Computed example of a mutant assay.
Amino acid sequence: MLIDHSDEPLLRLLVNATRQAQLKGPALAEAHRDVGRQLARSVARHLVLEDFEIQHVTGRSTGVRLKAGAEPVILAVMLAGLFLAEGVWCLLPESSLLLHNDGTDLQGASMHGRPLIIVDSVINTGRSIRDVLSAVSVLQPASIAVVALVAYRANLQVLVDDFPDVFFHVARLSDHSYVGRGTTDTGARLFGTTNWGSER
């Protein structure tokens, strides 16, 4: 299921910051965290909470937390998904945060019965997310959500159709397919590698 936040005013403002060419390095990373924090609010609708006792300023009271044993696993698709994932993690601090590169072995990850949140900055062809979704299905998470800063509408719709049980939370949909290099690549701008030979 697609949950598109493209028309929400606050997310439009936050996403706009990530699109500005002059923003890079730590400032761009923080802009991604800001978007992640907002998308965490969307993802939280699908999480299970439980009551527990807290010490309130007036004495003992009842608070709320993520259900014990059902804390989410946040899987950041590296490299560019890291800071967006950190934003989600900031609002769901009882979660586990894992980093995923191509070829990462996820078999040792404890996802069974826990919600899984897969985070990638950009979904363009959809190949990376498709590969991760295929890899994690055998780990039997309780539910799967994908969080993305921007997604190419046509290819995202294919993913939504192919994975009907996955919630796709997207800050912005684009009608343009684009793969950046050097100064136009999101990961290179985030990590300060725009002038590296590998980016040319």
Score class of each variant (00 low, 15 high):
2 L>E: 14
5 H>I: 09
6 S>A: 08
7 D>H: 14
8 E>N: 15
9 P>A: 06
14 L>C: 12
16 N>V: 10
18 T>E: 10
18 T>M: 12
19 R>Q: 11
20 Q>Y: 09
21 A>Q: 14
22 Q>L: 13
22 Q>D: 12
25 G>S: 05
29 A>Q: 14
29 A>C: 12
30 E>M: 06
31 A>F: 15
34 D>G: 07
35 V>Y: 15
35 V>Q: 14
37 R>Y: 09
37 R>W: 10
39 L>Q: 09
40 A>L: 10
41 R>Q: 10
43 V>L: 08
44 A>M: 13
44 A>R: 01
45 R>N: 13
45 R>D: 11
46 H>K: 03
49 L>P: 02
50 E>T: 03
51 D>C: 07
51 D>I: 08
53 E>M: 13
53 E>L: 15
56 H>F: 09
57 V>F: 14
61 S>V: 12
62 T>F: 11
62 T>P: 02
63 G>N: 03
63 G>H: 05
65 R>A: 09
65 R>F: 04
67 K>D: 07
68 A>K: 06
69 G>H: 00
74 I>Q: 07
75 L>T: 08
78 M>R: 13
78 M>V: 07
82 L>Q: 08
84 L>Q: 14
88 V>I: 11
90 C>K: 09
92 L>E: 00
92 L>W: 02
94 E>Q: 06
94 E>C: 01
95 S>A: 11
95 S>F: 00
98 L>G: 13
98 L>W: 14
99 L>D: 13
103 G>I: 04
104 T>D: 13
105 D>P: 05
105 D>F: 00
105 D>C: 01
108 G>H: 11
108 G>L: 14
109 A>E: 11
109 A>Y: 14
112 H>W: 02
112 H>P: 02
113 G>T: 05
113 G>V: 00
114 R>Y: 07
116 L>H: 07
119 V>R: 14
119 V>A: 07
119 V>D: 15
123 I>R: 15
124 N>P: 00
127 R>G: 02
128 S>W: 15
129 I>R: 13
129 I>F: 12
134 S>G: 10
135 A>Y: 11
136 V>S: 04
138 V>H: 02
138 V>W: 00
140 Q>N: 03
140 Q>M: 08
140 Q>G: 04
141 P>V: 04
141 P>E: 00
142 A>Y: 00
144 I>F: 04
145 A>E: 02
145 A>R: 01
146 V>H: 03
148 A>V: 00
148 A>K: 15
148 A>S: 15
149 L>Q: 15
149 L>F: 12
149 L>T: 13
151 A>K: 14
152 Y>K: 11
152 Y>L: 09
152 Y>Q: 07
153 R>Y: 10
154 A>R: 06
154 A>E: 08
155 N>D: 12
156 L>H: 07
157 Q>S: 14
157 Q>L: 14
158 V>K: 10
158 V>D: 12
158 V>R: 10
164 P>I: 03
164 P>K: 04
166 V>E: 04
168 F>S: 15
171 A>Q: 05
173 L>P: 05
174 S>H: 10
175 D>K: 08
176 H>E: 08
176 H>R: 08
178 Y>T: 10
179 V>D: 05
180 G>K: 01
180 G>T: 03
180 G>I: 05
181 R>F: 13
182 G>A: 02
182 G>D: 01
184 T>L: 05
186 T>R: 01
186 T>P: 01
186 T>W: 01
186 T>Q: 00
190 L>R: 04
195 N>S: 05
196 W>S: 01
196 W>L: 00
196 W>E: 06
198 S>Y: 10
198 S>N: 10
198 S>D: 07
200 R>A: 03
